[in-house]
């Protein structure tokens, strides 16, 4: 991981280098991407949540995305209506 001043010193840019071998070749990569499990997608989720925690102090959650930014759960997702008492366990699992 590298932390560098952004252009014009407007904030800090975070760079992550990740080396990995994806099992299953191109097919494996396509399958992982479909399920939002491709490492670049997971990294995108992590970096956005990291930015939220650093800038806002919390991960931003909505009724539709109770776990926050997650490529695997972008659409369809929980309807944009309040979770019922029983739902949080199920949705957050």
């Amino acid at each position: 991981m590298r932390f560098e001043p952004a252009p014009g010193r407007r904030g800090t840019a975070v760079y992550v280098t990740l080396r990995y071998v994806m099992p299953g070749g191109a097919l494996g990569k396509a399958a992982a991407k479909y399920f939002g499990e491709e490492p670049s997608q997971q990294l995108d989720d992590d970096l956005r949540r990291f930015k939220q925690v650093i800038e806002v102090g919390e991960v931003i959650r909505s009724d539709g995305a109770p776990r926050g930014k997650q490529a695997r759960q972008e659409f369809p997702q929980h309807p944009a209506r309040p979770l019922s008492d029983e739902e949080p366990k199920e949705v957050m699992a």
């Binding site: 995305a65 926050g68 972008e74 659409f75």
Partner: peptide
Amino acid sequence: NTNPNAGVAEKMFGHPVAGIYGYSHLTGGF
């Protein structure tokens, strides 16, 4: 920061936009 579905918004608009109440999942699913 406020749109948990920033990925979808980024695909549609190039960059993400803010979360909006009651305005589709493209703007966060609030």
